[in-house]
Design a protein around this nucleic acid. Structure first.
Lengths: 343, 343
DNA sequence: ATCGGTTGAGCAAACGTTTAACCAGATTGA
DNA sequence: TCAATCTGGTTAAACGTTTGCTCAACCGAT
């Protein structure tokens, strides 16, 4: 544990004052080129690394942001975090990770800790667009953006484009000639589920079709998909059965495919399937592989981070909710083998 | 963006010197009880929150650690990160998250950034126990622990107990009367796969049995499990076929179960299955639900963090590799409905 | 010769804490 | 009674930076 090398050491090695050393390293101030390179070489050769705490103290910037989520590092926060920390790293900013685990006391303490650590900004992420964490009054002054979360009035938020993606999914099914397109999805109290239904209906209406049946709400599980396969594919008269299903997530899609396969129904021959989420491990393992909607969560995290930095830098950022462009990922469950398109 | 309230403000409000204010708040030094409460109440009422950067500067502690991983926030790092940050939060320590994405340049820059941010310690996490990140010479002085990673000589590491868990899995199958226990697992160049084979062999040997066939290496995928179901359950003479399979991970197990079911083989009636990883979303969705080994990754992260703090505090911590206790999670794929046991 | 401007660099004051050293007054022990 | 000890606090230095201000030296133009 040898003593840390400070800017004093650099100054001594280069035979200049600390002020000059600081300016040389940061590229600020006026100074002879010769001096600048001499200082920089000295710094390099003695392995100088600036102490961000000291710098932060005087600059009132910590080059640090906090990601606080109440998704216990789940499937959604994950790609968001990856995109965020990637973009931040490129800008020399580090990311604190904190999960509040839906515990209000923990939540409060987390925000306080972030304030104490002097984060420059906060990304608040959730797993549902219709719920949100509320910042305690005391930390209201920290620049904040919201991701996959309810977005308070006047705040800045980044959410997936559920409506658009659902519409595109349905349009894809229409484009391959399907006309009786059912929709199986999660619980109705999820806004995401309602938005996806909206997109599905809009696409059908635009095509002059009506929904073959109301959207089928349930749980976000394979079991739900499986059960609905039994129901949709056995009860109605064969020519009334759907020839395509847009599923609210990939698990439901997988359950449906497994159930349909068990019943001897051909996928995509008899019924074409589009999923939602592009959860690779699921989508790639179904038989056939699942065509599904990718919500661009990685880019969502990235954009949120970049906007946050803009705010921190004092640039004006328009308040309001942004919707992330989605992407359809074509695999085998709709029969076509086109490559991916973008919205 | 109103000016931050500092300890000076607290001191002024309580009519004491900043030194006394500091001591009152931190509970150090001698002082009249009356004074202490007066200061604390003042701090509370004006919403004082200490500036950790300033504190860190003088104490040479940042109350911050770094988690650097080359698993892009995958399935393994995830629970480790959760356990770690949970334990750290309880101790008032924040966690920087950084992924190096198997990019050496990024890796170097990440370690440098950690040093600049003055982290008190580093948790280096990987997704394979046989590979590791190597710290650049320059940051060698930061206390470090390794998780799910190769562990350099003299360092401190925390890995799952692959051998023990595999043995326990096999013993469970033996305990329910199975004798022809096959093992389907991932690529042989994964140390984890080799350790699990070792545990499987050890359990069989202890029971006086021999393996019905060599361990079947392949990929960590459902497809591999599916394919091996076709192979194991159709080729050999029926009474030579396995009556149980210990799978190297839950995906393989799921693929096997699906494949076996397709062939009309009963699970667990004809063949009992134990998986590995306890990846809930998979294990709970198979039919029947999967009995599997939980490697205790959450606790792994927690223990690693606590040990790291011990080192930071100057306590002596024995170098070497620790193995995390595992846990068998009983679901339906072995037929019994006992509750979980611990090793 | 003197003056205004530029160039290159140093001095010292911050930033918000902690903490070693010090000190006045009260209490104690012999 | 007097020195020693304890009590409850204060003063000031330090941590490693950045940065506003000052200043000497030099230059070309009056």
């Amino acid at each position: 544990m040898t003593a840390r090398v400070t800017i004093r050491d650099v100054a001594a090695a280069a035979e200049v004052s600390v002020a000059t050393a600081s300016r040389a390293i940061n590229g600020t101030g006026r100074m002879a080129d010769e001096t600048r390179v001499r200082v920089r070489e000295a710094a390099l050769s003695i392995g100088y690394r600036p102490n961000m705490m000291a710098r932060g103290l005087v600059q009132k910037r910590s080059f640090t942001i906090g990601l606080v989520t109440n998704d216990t590092y789940g499937r959604f926060t994950l790609p968001v975090a990856a995109g965020l920390s990637q973009a931040m790293h490129d800008r020399g900013v580090s990311v604190f990770l904190a999960s509040t685990q839906d515990n209000p006391a923990l939540e409060l303490r987390t925000f306080e800790a972030m304030e104490e650590k002097c984060v420059d900004g906060l990304v608040v992420a959730n797993r549902r667009v219709d719920r949100g964490l509320t910042l305690p009054e005391t930390v209201k002054s920290i620049p904040t953006v919201y991701v996959m979360s309810a977005c308070p009035d006047g705040a800045i938020g980044f959410n997936p484009d559920d409506v658009g993606a659902a519409r595109a999914a349905t349009e894809h099914l229409l484009s391959i000639g399907r006309t009786r397109i059912a929709h199986i999805t999660g619980p109705k109290d999820f806004a995401a589920a309602r938005y996806r239904e909206e997109g599905w209906r809009a696409a059908l209406a635009e095509a002059g079709l009506s929904a073959p049946a109301p959207a089928i709400y349930g749980t976000w599980s394979e079991a739900h998909g499986w059960d609905m396969a039994q129901q949709l594919l056995t009860t109605a008269a064969p020519d009334k059965r759907p020839d395509a299903v847009f599923c609210g997530n990939d698990q439901i899609a997988r359950g449906f495919i497994d159930g349909a396969t068990r019943l001897g129904v051909g996928i995509p021959g008899d019924v074409a399937i589009v999923g939602f989420d592009n959860w690779e491990i699921f989508a790639a393992a179904t038989r056939p592989p699942l065509t599904t909607m990718d919500m661009g969560l990685l880019d969502l995290g990235r954009s949120a981070g970049l906007s946050l930095l803009d705010i921190v830098d004092g640039k004006r950022v328009e308040p309001g909710l942004r919707h992330q462009p989605y992407r359809i990922v074509i695999r085998g469950s709709c029969g076509t083998a086109k490559t991916a398109g973008t919205a």
